[in-house]
Design a protein around this nucleic acid. Structure first.
Lengths: 344, 344
DNA sequence: ATTTGTAACTAAACCGTTTTAGTTAATACT
DNA sequence: AGTATTAACTAAAACGGTTTAGTTACAAAT
């Protein structure tokens, strides 16, 4: 494992055989290429004794495969994506793949350049949580049959593999829960973006509100700026609270909005759930049960998402032994956890 | 940026020049190698028009540099390491480097094999949050002058570059705060490990307890199993609570222990801070101010750690323009935030 | 009229593998 | 005895770049 490396050439010279022989043997192709058992033994022993490890770049260049998968996410610092990255990495490692990741910071331009970057680093496949403003690269990848799985966010118009959650269903259920508690004026809080996932969450919310027991309420929406969400969510929530609280509940479409929302409400001295109720889509601080009040949340199966994405990708790359997956478009179920933030 | 790539050879053939010329020009060595301005223009234009991007593997193989830095951390899913990874990635990207990361899951064996892996992937440098049970690889890297920065965890016996925080000072301050609030029996809660950082935190705690105003108290310690910390911390805390609460405060040496500790205390119906106080070393759920009660915490400068590590590493690799850093061993200051969990 | 110098290029080696297309010597077959 | 076959190997090309060590053509200097 040292840095003074032994190369294929060295082994060949020391043992008086050809590089070819060494390469074949060390790649388990000795038998099928009729290298004698004895020679094989010698080569294997020498390689082991000298800690031979093939140069990954050379091998990649020659083979056109790198045993690397590229992961592009909005932001590795976000708990949600960190967990996804974690499960992707773990599953990939099991199969002998390494992960190269980069964060797009929600910039389509950066995403595009990252994809280019990954390609010319010769990754074998890509998992992308896209900004969804980058159809052109996704299409390009598809056209070239490049192994690709979208995760968390997919392009509804494109026929790609993907792993997402049931955003509509989760939000619909959460909203209905509030309605069933008698909440009428329910505010949907989201970041300002065209993400399909958010659209679905909105629709889940809207349908619940409008179709509730023949007694339709008006949907109320606020959209905050992603790059400034802490301050913005505070400001926008304040408008519903001062001079006089005029809503019954907030539905937060992401965990960080919920966190800031709660912080804002506390700052404004609004009692949750006594004066206003709240729910969060996704619960990832691993602490939403500890905050005061514990927050009712829609839970996403983060691990499963990551694992599934890798499985689909490996299948796509033909890297797996047997199984061929039938369905490479997955909409995973979410879990709904009722806690105190909606009332007792 | 497509997949049907243009190669150096193609450019050379199309323009009737040599590969050498193309390579030189595209690497900004045209002038110093006296390639005529006209030829340079033609090459640059053609390359741009055809979206030429050099194959990273080939270039790496040939140059022996890959513009890649390897990051080995215990676990990317952990908020703390996710944030570190985030700041490392951001800083690295600024300088044109990509990050390859892998999680060791606290296994020295895995860490060792990851280091080997990274090396033969030809990363240009390594940032490692080590298990600290892998002296041999670290020494090997040092002996070979391989660019290396330890982060968060360092080997006190080895003369490496590192970026850590003032674990002793932070914990000392936190403990003194509890003492000043009149808490006598203070329990130090840590995971069972030999990590230097934890040792320092312990010493910070112990010195505070033992030397407090000439009226030394006994240190009380509990150590929980990392692989089973949720259940274990609960079990061990219970022993101080039942049949009768017999301590005044808990000092948690990591954020996840604090989280589980609080969860356990709530489960046991112990009132914090009325019956028992608590502090946490590091606050990373980004929610410790929202939980009930808000938890007094030692804050680590996560971003700064990551940035600093990259700066040192790049300097070590000779990859930066001007600056040469003098001090490549950094102990960063922590911040201490008082919240309600220690009493009003 | 040869040498010197230089601008403008290029052939070929090299990085460390994999892989294709052989070669050689011995054995088996007719 | 001559041809096929096979076991056991290998030389060399390929992957796509970078880099070293030239070469060529022309102008200026002696």
């Amino acid at each position: 494992m040292g840095l003074k490396k032994v190369y294929l050439k060295d082994i060949a010279e020391q043992l008086n055989v050809s590089k070819t022989a060494v390469s074949l043997v060390l790649n388990n192709k000795g038998d099928e290429n009729k290298i004698s058992q004895e020679t094989q033994k010698r080569i294997i022993k020498f390689a082991k004794d000298h800690n031979y490890v093939p140069n990954h770049l050379a091998r990649g260049l020659s083979r056109g495969k790198t045993e690397t998968i590229g992961l592009i996410i909005p932001n590795i610092s976000d708990t949600f994506y960190a967990k996804i990255a974690g499960s992707i990495e773990a599953r990939a490692a099991q199969e002998g793949f390494t992960v190269v990741f980069s964060s797009s910071n929600e910039s389509p331009k950066k995403e595009s350049s990252l994809i280019g970057d990954m390609l010319n680093r010769q990754v074998d496949g890509l998992i992308v949580a896209s900004t969804q403003k980058n159809q052109k690269d996704i299409k390009m990848l598809m056209k070239n049959n490049f192994p690709l799985v979208l995760i968390d966010r997919n392009y509804p118009d494109l026929d790609t593999n993907f792993v997402v959650v049931d955003n509509y269903g989760g939000m619909n259920k959460a909203t209905k829960h509030l309605l069933s508690k008698g909440k009428k004026r329910i505010v949907f809080v989201a970041i300002n973006s065209d993400l399909e996932a958010l659209k679905q969450r909105y629709l889940g919310y809207r349908d619940a509100v409008e179709k509730f027991e023949g007694n339709p309420n008006e949907p109320i929406e606020i959209y905050v700026d992603y790059n400034n969400y802490e301050a913005d969510v505070k400001k926008k929530i304040k408008e519903f609270v001062e001079p006089k609280l005029n809503v019954d509940a907030f539905v937060f479409s992401t965990h960080y909005l919920a966190r800031e929302g709660l912080r804002a409400l506390k700052g404004l001295n609004v009692k949750v759930p006594e004066e206003v109720a709240m729910v969060s889509f996704s619960d990832l601080s691993a602490a939403f049960d500890l905050v005061e009040p514990p927050i009712t949340s829609v839970l996403q199966p983060v691990e499963e998402m990551g694992n599934m994405a890798v499985d689909i990708l490996l299948d796509e790359m033909g890297a797996t032994k047997v199984k061929t997956m039938n369905d490479k478009k997955r909409i995973l179920e979410v879990e709904f956890i009722v806690r105190k933030s909606c009332g007792s």
